[in-house]
Design a binder for these strands. Structure first.
Lengths: 231, 231
DNA sequence: CTCCAAAGGTATGTCTGCGAGCCATTGGCC
DNA sequence: GGCCAATGGCTCGCAGACATACCTTTGGAG
């Protein structure tokens, strides 16, 4: 065999520093962690947190400006702000491996739901989850993908594991790119919200098995949709 | 809240190219993907696969030579070979976040076991799993950690998801570093082998729920051991 | 015995990315 | 009205990493 080697000898870095920085900032915007109208951290702060030089951060931001994701304003209380209308992700992405992305997502997100339900959550965390649920349920079609992602990220965060949260964020970006190529319909959305309620209820009730099951059903919906659309 | 930002604005790259390359090669050796006496891929091949220049690969290998992990021989049929006795990992590692590592591992590995059991495996994959199980069950104390990792990696591979396999490899490295600081005893080993049998049997029988459960119990063993030892 | 393919060993010029510093702009505070 | 802190905008020299080319060693094939 020895084809586990493929996993271990995969490329050390996904791209150059610039590309990866753009990717991260896009993640923050597309997953709704920084909403339209809100401000990104300052260039100096981003440079520190992303472990990258300020020059590189600026180049990445410039690239986002040119693609109408953000606008920058100078002066104190200035900064880089997310535009109200952000471009759709470029279509025709190579669908790498749908099976790969969906398998990883299912493992991570059902695991996160179960783990979150198995923890004793503080009042702030419980409030956070309810707030995200509320946001998602009242979201319009245009902002649904973002609000949905924020809810799922909040669930991952509720596990208390930063690396699990990071993994979920990456996974969602991959799957969202695929989802962006197929239509999002009102009925899906209603159904999705009902499932969200079950998931959050199970987590808040401390019911790991229920949370896992509810999440699994939730994910299976979009998974079969995807497998259907993309052959 | 907005502390999902912590996950998204984490550092873009874990270290410089050299450090990450060393890390990868150590993973391959420590996880037993390249066993003692075996040869690493050639420098040129590693450079291509790791997406890094040959100079960097050589520096990384040099560092491994100086630490007695490998030896290089010139000429055709030469190469870089893994030593029989590889150094123990440096103790006193900062125990970053034990909870974080264990949470992620549980999610990934129970998910992998379940996913593997839910697939129809080819004869080669089934044979591979049985072979790894056999290797682990007959391993001596000294080589147990390696053989054990190979078995778990084989399970991840059986999901057919490369990124899941990569994630499991990373996760195991983190947890193994912690495990290296506490003793490995014969009784643990016997118990562990029995659990391995159950896991593999469930996977080969196509019993996802059973595989998940067996894996969960298996992991809980070392998890509670760790939490106990490391406060 | 000779040849030569494949592996490690070496050298050099280029370019990316970083660090550090300074400038320009802005709006609240005193 | 003036100050000034915090932000984006800009420049320059250095270190790391890269691509490429060439050299040296080795053992099997012919």
């Amino acid at each position: 065999m020895e084809h586990a080697e493929e996993a271990l000898f995969r490329p050390v870095r996904a791209g150059n520093a610039f590309e990866e920085t753009v990717e991260r900032l896009m993640q923050a915007i597309r997953l709704g962690v920084v909403a339209p109208g809100e401000r990104l951290p300052s260039e100096r702060e981003l440079a520190t947190r992303l472990g990258v030089s300020r020059v590189t951060v600026r180049e990445a931001i410039r690239s986002l400006q040119e693609n109408n994701y953000v606008e920058s304003r100078r002066g104190r209380y200035g900064g880089t702000f997310v535009n109200d209308e952000i471009p759709k992700s470029a279509p025709g992405k190579e669908f790498g491996d749908i099976h790969d992305a969906l398998t990883l997502r299912k493992v991570l997100e059902t695991g996160a739901a179960e783990a979150a339900a198995g923890r004793s959550l503080g009042p702030a965390e419980r409030r956070g989850l309810r707030a995200r649920l509320e946001e998602a349920s009242t979201a319009s079609l245009g902002e649904y993908r973002r609000k949905d992602s924020r809810l799922h990220l909040a669930i991952a965060e509720a596990t208390g594991s930063a690396s699990l949260t990071a993994a979920v964020a990456d996974s969602r970006m991959r799957v969202n790119e695929l989802l962006d190529t197929i239509p999002l319909l009102e009925p899906n959305l209603v159904h999705s919200n009902a499932q969200h309620e079950r998931i959050i209820a199970s987590i808040l009730d401390g019911d790991p098995a229920g949370a896992r099951l509810a999440m699994a059903e939730h994910l299976d919906g979009t998974a079969s949709l995807l497998r259907g659309f993309l052959v």
